[in-house]
Design a protein around this nucleic acid. Structure first.
Length: 991
RNA sequence: GGGCGGUUAGCUCAGUCGGCUAGAGCGCCUGCCUUACAAGCAGGAGGCCACAGGUUCGAGUCCUGUACUGCCCACCA
């Protein structure tokens, strides 16, 4: 068997082998009907978008989740890691549209809805397969049998149910919203599809005549001047706003203005949003401002807000193609129409801009034109300026109290306050029993915890300032909104299965909206027959994501999965979606099931490149996880990612180009070398162990025959078990990995294995060394498994064949298992923690290091056997004498004399280490000796001075803890003694 | 504009409750192919802990400010 292990670790072989073991054993599959005495442990994967293959951030996130899942599985929990993907509405539709445009030169509107969706579906199929394959090659131990997709039948049913419930509870309403409209392609754009371009434009200063002139400081004011970059929108002005702090405000607010061209009479209002005019200001806005702002609620987001605050009329003057039109919500057209306005109808918005400016110029109302450079949002598709465009959208009311919730307000364990009959979360305008309150409450009473804790502030701020959630999207790819509408009242509907609401449409007519429950095709048919039409829009992609922790488990059915695995345990995700996603899952989990979907939220760091930039496609600085897996192995990648995971916000990973064997030049990072080196070391140490473990028999083990180095390595192992377990329970990843790295490499490989070599050759010691080694290796593999699952599984299989039983009778046990993935997590071995052995071995190591240093400094070949004397206080001399062989074997010593009282031999090099005086005999090089000793003298002097100063300081003696004072005294004595010894040696050298 | 981080060795990062002469990996230097591993072994060099104040017997650690740097959100008449 041992011969089969290659000299260098070959990740591909081991990965394939381990993967097969896991698949055949169905170890990732969670049984919803089985009961584990240790409880359950559940994670739902943050479903990756099907837009593209996974990047390194995904690799990090999923590595961490897998570490947690494997850890808990080994602890005996009934463990479920639910995998799946997200349809990612607009993002996916956009990439497919881009592709179709590039490859076929066609737009979405050139296809029918179903035809286009077929293209998106095939894109999704392709990427879903790729993503799941990527997760598998990373070693993710998801329950693949349960893989979900946010638009599959089960999730879709949950979406329908949740929507119906919200609709029936009156939490969904029709409201107006300004969307990013692309007049060229006539589509709505998401905020991140808007490209900001700096353009050279103008500020036009337009005079609006007051209905009646106003006297200010003895001057008669007939006009007020507004400044605008978009004169054409003035046709839709419904007010002029000024800052209440403006000295002119008291004369002007409340007065009326006659809007030029249109003749509409509009008020002057006060709003703090308006920037005061200040020509000297550094603020661009203040410099250009006149103090008067024209307010066009239908065509500007800020003006929309102002309009809301002051209940202003909203007048839309544009058609969807960006031309001036009276047909799309110009509500006072009949009253105001006149030849000047009619002239403008049909003009493109830019044409109209010129015409409007020209009109003002001819009427002598154009006060000034100034050049102005500013950013304008442009469509990433057509590259024309986007138009804020008013439209009717579906909203979820997030701050509306909900009456029929499963909890009572009295149950709240956080502070509340009541006014106007509504109970609010204290200090906020968030009702306790609103959706926002449902999400915020659990944070306040600590049912919901963030790691690192600081992210809870993000979550809290967002929820406290939350506005209603617009949920409709003018897309084709997504969950179609389950609402049918008609101007006529519906008939013969079962109120259990259909909910009817009335809202006004864009033209102000009353419309009946019917939402149907899931699985009611008969009702939908009936609605169609009655002339109802289904809403064209789809739901915001976060709507289905919000249900993910329970839609994946089969909600609203009372499935065994839901009973067993909900609520889940931890959500592990990136910080940019704390608000968009995490808060909404909590909201909907509370609303739909009355329970938060998870108690812990772990937010991982963002991986940046070597220059601190976000990894992105456009910068070309991203690293493909599959490349790292190819070049270094999945375990190496995982090791490196986990070892970088502290609770910092960002981590940097220097990126370099490498050439793969197949000739591709790709991005990678030397950081992965760390992981690969570790795996190689693990591989070879295990190989060495197994070369020597044949015939190991626990029955030959006698606790009494444990050597000090055996007790030492078991003590170190016990420490590693304790700290690794503790760290993983608290979402710390790099700490346990560093700890295991040091234990495995520095303790086990550098020392224990080296000592084991001669001991294995000694028939008297061989059984104890074999049993200890087999046991320690076994436990090390278990501790490392969550981090580097493939290689540990592979080695575990070999170990099982060579040493089927790794018990230390009377000391410790390692329950056998068919595969490491389901092997028991190491039990605490605190009784094996042995401070005496640790101290003794440290002494031994110091002697060995001292001899090695002399050997190096004197250029003595490693193979040359040296004779050595060590002078030590009685107790330490006794310890060293017992460990003579340990010292001799690793320091290359022939004769080793250890005594309490001993003179420095002639022509010996000397080392002073703590209380020890170490003499390496028959080595003469007084120059090297002097250099070494002088350096040590300097070191000791540097140490002694501040300690003396401290102890001379009365304030220190008066205030410091007694322990600290004692430690300082001890340390000073220790250093002073050594300094004496070094000075003595130097003096002898001069003789 | 609002919020949240970071700045420690050439690079990437640890550093717990404020307390021993500040640590690791990579890179660098010296010597070793010592039959587990050169992806390795042994040894070594390398630090004004960003800057300026403050609190304290004592500050990399706590407080205030400055500079630089990054992330998230909002907005840009």
């Amino acid at each position: 068997m041992t011969e089969e292990l290659s000299k260098v670790y070959e990740p591909k072989d081991v990965e394939a082998q381990a993967e097969q073991i896991w698949r055949q054993g169905r170890y990732f599959h969670a049984d919803a009907t089985s009961q584990s005495p240790h409880g359950t442990y559940t994670i739902v994967i943050p479903p990756p978008n099907v837009t593209a293959a996974l990047h390194l951030g995904h690799a990090l996130n999923n590595t961490l989740q897998d570490i947690l899942i494997r850890f808990r599985r080994m602890q005996g929990r009934n463990t479920l890691w639910m995998p799946g993907t997200d349809h990612a509405g607009i993002a996916t539709q956009t990439v497919v549209e881009k592709q179709l445009l590039a490859e076929l030169g066609k737009r979405r509107t050139d296809f029918g809805r179903d035809e286009f969706l077929a293209y998106v579906q095939s894109w999704k199929d392709e990427y879903e397969i790729r993503i799941l394959a990527q997760l598998k090659s990373m070693g993710c131990s998801c329950d693949w049998d349960r893989t979900r997709f946010t638009m599959d039948e089960i999730c879709a049913r949950a979406v329908r149910e949740a929507f119906f419930k919200l609709f029936a509870d009156g939490l969904i309403y029709r409201g107006k919203r300004l969307v990013n409209w692309d007049p060229a392609t006539q589509t709505v754009l998401a905020d991140d599809e808007v490209e900001h371009q700096t353009v050279q434009g103008h500020f036009w200063y337009l005079d609006y005549p007051l209905e009646t002139p106003v006297q200010i400081d003895g001057k008669t004011i007939e006009y007020i001047t507004v400044a605008t970059t978009r004169p054409e929108t003035m046709l839709g002005d419904t007010a002029v706003a000024m800052n209440p702090a403006d000295p002119r405000a008291k004369y002007l607010v409340g007065k009326m203005v006659r809007l030029p061209i249109v003749g509409r009479i509009i008020p002057v209002i006060a709003d703090e949003h308006v920037v005061l005019s200040d020509a000297q200001s550094d603020d661009e806005k203040a410099k250009f401002s006149t103090g008067f702002l024209k307010v066009t609620p239908a065509h500007d987001p800020d003006d929309w807000q102002i309009g809301q605050r002051h209940s202003l009329a909203v007048i839309n003057i544009m058609a969807p193609d960006g031309s001036i039109s009276d047909k799309f919500g110009w509500t006072d057209w009949q009253q105001i129409k006149n030849p000047d306005v009619e002239n403008l109808i049909g003009m493109d918005r830019f044409e109209a801009r010129e015409a409007v400016v020209e009109w003002f110029r001819q009427e002598n109302l154009l006060a000034e034109v100034r050049p102005y450079t500013h950013d304008i949002g442009h469509s990433y598709r057509s590259h024309v300026p986007i138009e804020p465009y008013l439209s009717d959208q579906w909203y979820i009311a997030v701050k509306q109290p909900i009456t029929n919730l499963r909890f009572t307000i009295a149950d709240c364990r956080f502070e509340t306050e009541k006014h106007d009959g509504v109970t609010y979360i204290k200090g906020t305008n968030v009702p306790v029993n609103s959706l926002a309150g449902l999400a915020l409450g659990p944070l306040l009473d600590e049912r919901l915890k963030f790691y690192p804790e600081r992210y809870s502030k993000n979550y809290q701020n967002w929820l406290e300032n939350l506005r209603d959630w617009p949920i409709s999207r003018q897309l084709w790819w997504g969950h179609r909104i389950p609402v049918w509408s008609s101007g006529k009242s519906p008939k013969d509907l079962d109120p259990q299965k259909a909910c009817i609401k009335q809202f006004q449409n864009e033209q102000g007519d009353t419309v009946y909206y019917v939402c149907t429950a899931p699985d009611c095709p008969d009702i939908e048919r009936s609605l169609l027959q009655q002339g109802f039409v289904q809403d064209q829009d789809v739901l915001d992609t976060w709507f289905s994501s919000a249900l993910w922790p329970f839609s994946t488990l089969g909600w609203p059915e009372e499935t065994p999965e839901l009973k067993t695995f909900y609520p889940t345990d931890v959500l592990c995700t990136a910080r940019e979606i704390i608000t968009l996603w995490v808060s909404r899952m909590v909201m909907m989990g509370q609303y739909c099931l009355g329970q938060i979907p998870f108690a812990d939220v772990y937010i991982h760091a963002m991986i940046q490149d070597g220059q601190g930039r976000k990894m992105s496609k456009s910068l070309g600085n991203g690293i493909d996880p599959l490349v790292a897996i190819d070049s270094h192995g999945a375990d190496a990648m995982r090791f490196t990612l986990a070892s970088m995971t502290t609770d910092t916000q960002d981590v940097r990973m220097p990126v370099c180009e490498i050439t793969l064997p197949d000739g591709r030049v790709v991005n990678s990072s030397t950081k992965f070398d760390n992981g690969r080196n570790f795996c190689n070391k693990l591989w070879n140490a295990s190989r060495f162990a197994m070369m020597n473990l044949a015939g190991t028999n626990p029955d030959d083990f006698r606790p009494r025959s444990l050597d000090v180095c055996d007790r030492w390595i078991l003590s170190r192992l016990a420490g590693a078990i304790r700290e690794t377990t503790d760290a993983l329970e608290n979402f710390r990843f790099n700490e346990p990995l560093n700890q295991l790295y040091r234990f495995f490499w520095n303790d086990l490989c550098d020392w224990y294995l080296e000592w084991a070599k001669p001991r294995l050759a000694d028939p008297a010691q061989k059984p104890v060394v074999q049993n200890v080694l087999a046991f320690v290796l076994d436990q090390t593999l278990r501790l490392l498994h969550p981090f580097v699952p493939f290689i540990t599984e592979g080695i575990f299989g070999n170990l099982n064949q060579i040493v089927p039983s790794r018990r230390l009778p009377g000391v410790a046990d390692a329950p056998s298992a068919p595969a490491l993935v389901v092997a028991a997590w190491p039990s605490p071995l605190d009784e094996l923690i042995d401070p005496v052995a640790e101290c003794d071995i440290s002494l031994v190591q110091n002697v060995i290091r001292a001899v090695r240093e002399i050997r190096n400094k004197y250029n003595i070949p490693p193979a040359k056997i040296l004779d050595c004397s060590v002078q030590a206080p009685r107790e330490q001399a006794a310890v060293l004498s017992k460990a003579k062989e340990l010292i001799r074997s690793l320091a290359g010593i022939g004769v080793l004399e250890i005594a309490e009282d001993l003179k420095k031999p002639n022509s010996a090099a000397a080392a002073v280490v703590d209380d020890l005086r170490i003499y390496v005999r028959d080595v003469i090089d007084s120059d090297s000796e002097r250099r070494r000793l002088l350096k040590q003298k300097q070191f000791l002097c540097d140490g002694v001075t501040p300690l003396r100063k401290k102890l001379d300081n009365q304030a220190f003696l008066a205030n410091a803890k007694p322990d600290v004072i004692r430690q300082t005294r001890d340390k000073l004595k220790e250093l002073a003694d050594q300094l004496d010894a070094v000075e003595k040696l130097l003096a002898e050298l001069e003789e």
